[in-house]
Design a protein around this nucleic acid. Structure first.
Length: 172
DNA sequence: CCCTGATTCGC
DNA sequence: GCGAATCAGG
């Protein structure tokens, strides 16, 4: 894929929101690596956070050939611009949500950006809304992309599932 | 070992 | 311009 205006906008927004390169790469899609994101960020000139005092003033620890210090764009503050855009806080309802006869822990709900490889991809809410989250619980091997609880819902195996209403799946 | 960003350089 | 490889670190 290529860096379309749209994708660059997403990149800018997320980077300014403080998301890590890998998180951004993960959300932008399959063809984008974290290196690609970092590379693009630098080319766009929005990197430059002077973390180390010495790094900002001195040529750092790299004895390689250096360029006359590229002019880092305006040292914009992370927080200020981050507030300009959304990223709504997660609503905090009941500690658990019951679906059918299975109790799902929602304590780990995560945004797509925080979704890791081993996290349950059961969607929670409307993907159009900003409060959309994924379950995020630990993925159960052999249960598709879901945790144990959600796998049971997704792959309703037996026809005895309305049985055992009292039986609870204790998780954490 | 997991992760972070930074830099170089062949493409 | 792009990004894998690499570096330097947490």
């Amino acid at each position: 894929m290529s860096w379309t205006d749209e994708r660059v906008e997403l990149l800018k927004k997320m980077w300014l929101d403080g998301l890590s390169a890998s998180q951004i790469a993960n959300e932008l899609g399959h063809g984008v690596s974290r290196n690609a994101v970092i590379g693009k960020v630098h080319r766009l000139g929005l990197s430059g956070r002077a973390k180390t005092p010495a790094a900002a003033a001195a040529p750092a620890v790299r004895p390689r050939k250096e360029e006359p210090a590229r002019p880092v764009a305006a040292p914009m503050t992370h927080g200020a611009l981050a507030l300009a855009m959304d990223v709504a806080p997660a609503p905090a309802p009941a500690p658990r949500v019951a679906v059918d006869d299975v109790v799902i822990p929602i304590s780990e709900r995560v945004t797509i950006m925080d979704l890791r490889e081993a996290m349950c991809r059961w969607p929670l809410g409307d993907p159009t809304n900003s409060d959309f989250r994924y379950c995020g619980a630990k993925m159960q091997i052999g249960s598709g992309p879901y945790c144990l609880a959600h796998a049971r819902i997704a792959y309703q195996p037996a026809q005895d599932r309305r049985r055992d209403r009292e039986k609870r799946v204790a998780m954490r």
